[in-house]
């Protein structure tokens, strides 16, 4: 089952640390958000392959937005 990874906080995408096709473990950062001078990683909730990244660096995301999809 593909699983959407959602932003748990509103922020600006500081860094995209994974790309489609990458294998990630649970807890690996997929995207790093910047909010109020803090860097906040959005982590993979489980192991899997990254199917899709839906954000670009510099983009603003709202809490609850899907930032990536795990296969």
């Amino acid at each position: 089952m593909p699983e959407e990874i959602k932003a748990h906080i509103t922020g600006v995408v500081y860094q995209v640390t994974a790309k489609p096709g990458d294998r990630v473990q649970a807890g690996d950062p997929v995207v790093v958000l910047e909010s109020m001078k803090m860097e906040i990683p959005v982590e993979a909730p489980r192991a899997g392959a990254v199917q899709e990244i839906r954000v670009k660096e510099g983009q603003t995301v709202q809490e609850g937005d899907t930032i990536a999809v795990l296969a």
């Binding site: 748990h8 509103t10 909010s35 803090m38 906040i40």
Partner: peptide
């Protein structure tokens, strides 16, 4: 601060 102490002081914009 606009931060959530229950979530490790994560920022809370709005």
């Amino acid at each position: 601060y606009a931060e959530d102490p229950a979530k490790g002081f994560l920022p809370s914009p709005g």
